[in-house]
Each structure stands twice: as C-alpha cells, then as structure tokens.
Nucleic acid binder design. Structure first.
Lengths: 147, 147
DNA sequence: GTAGCTGCAAAGAATTTGCAGTTCT
DNA sequence: AGAACTGCAAATTCTTTGCAGCTAC
C-alpha cells in the first residue's frame, strides 16, 4: 500500500488533509488497476461500504493526478476516464469502435519519436494522449458475416 | 467548393437530403480550415446570416465525419473539437498546457508505426488521436522568469 | 479552534431528443 | 405524397458549486 503513503506525503506537502474518504479513493483506484470512469469508481467505493459522494470523487481525482497516481485517458467517447499510473508500464490504447474493447500496447519507438518532435518545437513534454481507433478482429468477422 | 460536392455525393449515396443548412455547414467548416469547437461553428454560421440551430449542427457533424470532411480532435479539455480534414495534410498536435497554444506537426514515422501496431493486434485502423502535452518555449521562459 | 473536508442538493454546461411544421425528391 | 430535415424547447448526462455541518491537525 505504498500508493497510499505516497498520497499522504503529497497531501502533507500541500498542507491538505489526510482523510478516510481520500484514502479510500486511493485504495479503490489502485485496486482497479486499469481504466475506469468516475462512475465506476463511485460504484466500487459503494461496494466497499464507503459512501463517498460523486462530488468528492470529482474533487479528489485532480489531486491524484497531481500526485502522479493516476493519469487521464481518453478511451473515446464522453466523460472523463482515468487509469492507474502505478505498477503499470506506460502504454497507449487501441480501441475498437464497434465494441469499445480496449487493448493496451507499448511501443518504445513512439516515446522516442515523441520526444524528438517535442524537442524540435522547443516544447518540454509532460504527457500525451495516444489512441488508435479501429475495428478489432472479432468485429471484423461479425461485419463480414453480416454481408 | 469541391467539398460541398463531395458531401452532396455522400448524402445521395446514403439517401439523405441535400439541404441549404447542411451545405452552409460544410462551407463554414471548410472555410475555417483549422480546429473548431461546435459553438464557434454556430457563431460562424450566424455571422454568415445562416441561422442553423445548435441541434442541427450537432446532428450534422457526425455526417461530415462519416463523409471524411472533418475529423474529431481532442485539443485537451472538454467538449467536442473537430477540424477540417480536407486540403490539409494529416497531422497531430502539440499542445501547451500553460497557454493552450496548438502546434501541428506531421511525422510520417508515426503513421507507419501505428499501422504496424494495429496489424500486430489484427485491428483495422480507421483513425487515431495523438496529442502531445507540454510547455511551449514562451511559457518555459515565462516560468523561469517567475522564479 | 479553525481551515479544510464532506455530502447534499442545486446549478451549470454540453449534448441529445421529441415534436410539430417545413422542405427536398 | 412522404420520408427527411429543422428549430425549438425540454430532457439527459456529466461535472461543478454553495452551503451547513463535521473533522483532521
């Protein structure tokens, strides 16, 4: 549970308070280890008997992002998606536009090129969104079948 | 105005109707030649004396996307952003998190790698989001100055 | 004790939908 | 004529805010 410790340290540095609700949120997040929508997180918390209100979760996530525990993602569509950033190598997403399946991939070459592009324009790179949209093998089969 | 022609053809194939409002939307879009938010488009239309309701614009944009005239983008933050896809080489974005400046870049190597990744997982690639977030040179200077 | 949290309910913002009237084909 | 489109207003959905009471420090 070093994530919780990390978050506590972050809060102290910022002179913010360490509260049971915040810790519960961090635990729920790291337990999820994957992508999640805010609503799913709220449901997870309910399941654990923690009654954190949606408002509080909305107010907490930016803190977790700032603390480096989660990162925002896209996963096409609406709403804010996030995903755990710890114990999780950096990766990007391949999303099926038919069934919304998400496949993670990791490709060192992208990182290198990104740094190169940023350098070319003098930007100091802090993060990125990278998502490939397509049709997964299963859905391709389904489509072929329909015709 | 070949974009308008292209859109008409698209509508006919789909047995949808060619209407003045739709044509006005296409014209406004190609005139913009850049990123835009739906609201800006509505404002542009008002400026041209076309009184398209927001609802109609919301209903039309997916059609323009399907016709390949515009593509959705992110340009961090909320709301749906789009950008013209014609007369415009394919490119991605470098966004400054401080001042929201957007720099477009084009890097063939990314496209190649993306196709490679998609192939590896059997996906048929249809589009992608790729946005690098960082701090632009000007804002870096400003920050250094503040300290 | 007090600044900072929390939950609740209300407010906002962005997008979608239902419907009645209008228009393309 | 008839299916499709349009604008309007209402409905949804997602997120933020105001506030009164509670809690960590």
């Amino acid at each position: 549970m070093q994530s919780v410790e990390k978050f506590r340290a972050f809060l102290r540095v910022k002179s913010l308070r360490v509260t049971p609700v915040r810790e519960a949120i961090v635990k729920a997040v790291v337990t999820r280890k994957g992508h999640f929508h805010i609503d799913e997180l709220v449901r997870d918390l309910r399941g654990k008997g923690v009654d954190a209100s949606r408002a509080t979760v909305y107010r907490s996530l930016p803190l977790l992002v700032e603390a480096g525990l989660v990162q925002p993602t896209i996963v096409s569509g609406n709403g804010h998606y996030y995903e755990t950033a710890v114990g999780h190598e950096h990766h990007d997403h391949l999303v099926c536009s038919e069934c919304d399946k998400v496949v993670e991939f990791q490709f060192e070459a992208f990182e290198i090129l990104q740094r190169e592009v940023a350098a070319k324009y003098g930007f100091e790179l802090t993060s990125h969104f990278h998502e490939l949209i397509g049709v997964c093998p299963e859905c391709q089969g389904r489509q072929a079948h329909e015709n």
